[in-house]
Simulated scan of single mutants.
Amino acid sequence: MTLTHDHTIREFRSYLQQLGYGKSSVRMLPDCVKSFLDHNNITDIKGVSQEQIRAFYGWLRQRPHKRREGALSEQYINHHIYALRVFFGWLEQTGQIAANPISTMKFKSPVPNRREPFTQSELKALFHACETPQETALLHLFYSCGLRRTEAVRLNTRDIHFRQQILYVREGKGAKRRAVPMTVKVSEELEAYYLEARLPPGMERPQPKTNDQEAFMLNRAGTRMGGDSYNRRLKEIAARTDIGREVSLHYLRHSVATHLLENGLTVEHVRDFLGHRHLEATQIYVKVNQNQIGKL
């Protein structure tokens, strides 16, 4: 790739950063564009044709996976096409090309990864299967409060204000902070875990001397609960039910977003609740029913 192309790729990466794309996208999208330029030995970006883009797309569909057997996934291929759409859109917008070669092109849409939210009866079964205040608190963190896995791992006792019914996410995805409102029931049941199981005997509040002492949720060893431990505990709860399908921490977060929309909360409010930066991210997580489409 020529020095000119290297410079263009760096400018494209800077453009993505300025728009607020996540770190993974800032890294991956320019890499996808570089793969396209290298594959076609392109020396003049202004002369890119639809035939070259089709040839690259065909190559992606035939290229074997480098780390496992089989072909590339539809999602991975679509990520490259998305990168080219953003890249050529940026070139056109900044006057570096006269016409966008990919703007009118159509490609096969990837089969979406179905993430069906839990039904209300399934959620009731999960809560009913809880045997300890900690297990109930776990479900509340991921469903009632919609936390991400890393957010729950980082959660400290000082981040939950039971009387005010507010849970603070100090550092969410993209270093985004937010306040999560809690119902009276959620606040009371999180406090029940804190008072009945979290506090050492004879102490009103643990002294925050170490990272583990600050943590809200502790594992069986008495240290800060990690993401894998959260997953295992959820699966233990689910094993006591007859749900009979895959369960995950993210399904709980996805489910509360869907249920909030179905109950009339606007997409903007759900975005703020989940801690998303853009509405597009919220629309990926939730399955909007027909009654909500007019509110987008």
Results as ranks from 00 to 15, higher is better:
121 S>Q: 12
127 F>T: 06
115 R>I: 01
97 I>Y: 11
124 K>C: 10
98 A>R: 15
99 A>M: 07
128 H>Q: 12
125 A>W: 00
132 T>D: 14
132 T>G: 13
104 T>G: 14
107 F>K: 03
129 A>T: 07
102 I>E: 06
128 H>E: 12
105 M>S: 04
102 I>D: 03
97 I>D: 11
105 M>W: 06
102 I>G: 07
101 P>R: 03
128 H>A: 13
125 A>V: 01
130 C>Y: 00
103 S>H: 14
101 P>E: 03
113 N>T: 12
133 P>Y: 01
121 S>V: 06
128 H>L: 09
100 N>Q: 04
128 H>R: 10
118 F>T: 00
130 C>Q: 05
107 F>I: 08
118 F>R: 00
113 N>D: 14
98 A>Y: 14
113 N>M: 10
122 E>Y: 01
128 H>P: 05
106 K>Y: 09
113 N>C: 07
99 A>F: 08
120 Q>F: 04
97 I>P: 03
113 N>Y: 07
112 P>F: 03
111 V>A: 12
133 P>N: 07
126 L>D: 02
119 T>H: 06
103 S>I: 15
110 P>C: 11
122 E>D: 12
107 F>C: 08
126 L>S: 03
126 L>G: 05
105 M>E: 07
121 S>G: 08
108 K>N: 08
117 P>D: 04
97 I>Q: 09
130 C>N: 02
112 P>C: 02
111 V>N: 13
133 P>T: 02
98 A>E: 15
123 L>C: 12
104 T>N: 13
116 E>I: 07
109 S>L: 15
128 H>I: 03
127 F>K: 05
117 P>H: 09
128 H>V: 06
122 E>Q: 10
130 C>G: 08
119 T>K: 06
104 T>F: 11
130 C>K: 01
106 K>D: 10
99 A>P: 00
103 S>P: 07
130 C>L: 06
112 P>G: 04
99 A>N: 08
108 K>T: 14
